[in-house]
Amino acid sequence: MVFFNKNKYFAQVNLFKYPPSSVFVIVPSFNEGKVIRNTVSPLVEQGYSVVVVDDCSTDDTKKALHGLPIHYLHHVMNLGQGAALQTGLEYACQSGAEYAVTFDADGQHNVLEIPALLEPVVEGRADISMGTRFKRREDIAQVPPFRKLILKGAILVNGLLTGLWLTDAHNGFRAMNRKAMCSIHLRENRMAHASEILSQIKNNKLRYEEVPVKIIYSEYSQMKGQSSMNSINILIDLLLKKIT
C-alpha cells in the first residue's frame, strides 16, 4: 500500500488550481470487498476525499477498507446503485464539496483520468461531464461486441426518452460541480438511474460535456458488472416510470 504523498498533493494543487480534497469521489459499493481496496487506495493517494457508500454489503467491504482515510456511509438496507449514488451526492453536497466524481467500485475506471474528466467542470464550461467510451478509437476497440450492441440500444432508448443524445450510456464515470451535485435527485433506486440523470440534466438545464475515458474490462468487472440481460429490466423500469 502506498501512503498519502504530500509532494504529489501540492503538485496537483498547482497543476489544476483546486485542492484534490475538495473533490469528493463517490464510490457506490455492493459486495465489492475483493476489489474495493484496489479501487479506493489510488484515489486516496491522489488526495481526493473518498466517499464509499456501502449499500448493505454482506461481505467484508468495511474490513477491506481498514486503515484508509475515507468517508464511510452504510445503508442499513440494500437499496440499489442509484440510491447509493444519491446518498453519496447528498453527503458531498452537505459536506461542502466543491466537485463530485462518481466512480465505479469494481475498478473499471482509471483514477488518472479524473483530472481530464473534471477539466470542463473546473473551467466552467459544464456543470457535469460524463465519461464516454465511444469517442476514441482505442476505447471503442476495448468494448466487447455484444456489450457494444446493448449499449447502442441503450443510447437509442435514452435519446428517445430524455431527448439527450450522448455517445455512451450507463457509464458510471461522471464529474460535476456543486450546482449539479445538489440539484440532481435520483429517484430510480436501481439501474435506471443512468437514464434518470440525463432527464434531470435536461430538466435542471445543466450544461454537460462528454469526455473520452477508457473502461477497463477486467475479468472481475465483466463478471460482477451488469449482465446484458439486465438491460431488459432497465428498459421495463424506464417505461413503468413513464406510466406511473
Binding site: F4, L68, I70, Y72, H75, E90
Partner: peptide, 19 residues
C-alpha cells in the same frame, strides 16, 4: 423507505482515519 434509510445513513456517516 429510501428517504428514511438515506437520512439514517447521512446521520451515521463515519470519517475513518482522517488525518
Amino acid at each position: 423507505q429510501t428517504e428514511l434509510i438515506r437520512k439514517i445513513t447521512l446521520q451515521r456517516a463515519e470519517k475513518l482515519n482522517q488525518p
